[in-house]
């Protein structure tokens, strides 16, 4: 039986980077994995930039190809419909907000037959994720448009290069609060490699190491 993991959430909450990391980790452990980059709004900083690297690591990338790879049109690769109905290990990276959830709404009747997880990715330092009210609105609109329910939360508290240990701990505490109010469990706490060891004791069971693949190098440390 295949297993589908869907990453949804606000714009810029970290879905693409997390999807890349999860897919690569799965490929290392279990072989064949599919990563679907379904960003239908704009392709700036999307996984399709890494097609070659992903395929070398055993991840099949499903994303717009050719000229359309850098188009801002709602383009869903035709093979998606078949792939979600088959037994595939698959990660689906959606565009942010309810706009991105439209795609999953279209695919949802096929997805429900397979085992699925849908995670709400939250970075509490993003402008529209700073209080429970906004998170609740986001969750409801995504579930309404996507016609599919969230099964868990991924806590991704960061300010990219300016992230600190305290900032992760305080941000995560906020996400745990949201999770309790939404009656969802926190599946992962995602942190950059440099923080992993220091947080392992405290959050060992949910901690995930994340490498940033899409962030331009010239931004890092500038």
């Amino acid at each position: 039986m295949g297993n589908i993991v869907i990453l949804a959430g606000g714009f810029g909450s970290g879905k693409s980077e997390i999807a890349l990391n999860l897919a690569l980790e799965k490929a290392k452990n279990c072989g064949k994995v599919i990563l679907a980059d379904l960003d239908i709004v704009n392709p700036f900083l999307a996984s399709r930039e890494l097609r070659k690297e992903l395929e070398e690591e055993g991840v099949r990338l499903v994303a717009p190809v050719g000229e359309l790879a850098f188009g801002d049109v709602p383009n869903i690769p035709a093979e998606m419909m078949g792939l979600v109905s088959q037994d595939n290990e698959m990660y689906i990276d959606l565009t942010g907000d309810e706009v991105g959830a439209l795609v999953i709404g279209y695919l949802s009747r096929h997805i429900k037959r397979a085992e699925y997880e849908m995670y709400l990715v939250i970075n509490p330092y993003r402008p529209f994720a700073v209080d429970l009210e906004s998170i609740l609105e986001l969750k409801n609109t995504i579930e309404g448009t996507g016609k599919i329910k969230f099964t868990g939360i991924i806590s991704n508290p960061n300010l990219v290069e300016e992230t600190t240990l305290d900032l992760i701990i305080n941000g995560h505490r906020r996400v745990v609060g949201y999770a309790e109010s939404l009656d969802l469990s926190v599946k992962y706490l995602t942190v950059e490699k440099r923080f992993y060891d220091q947080l392992l004791c405290q959050y060992g069971n949910i901690l995930k190491k994340i490498e940033l693949f899409l962030r331009p190098e010239w931004l890092q440390g500038s």
Binding site: N42, L45, P216
Partner: peptide
């Protein structure tokens, strides 16, 4: 320009 509009920073 496009990149500046789309990259995220604190």
């Amino acid at each position: 320009e496009g990149t500046l509009g789309n990259i995220m920073e604190p």
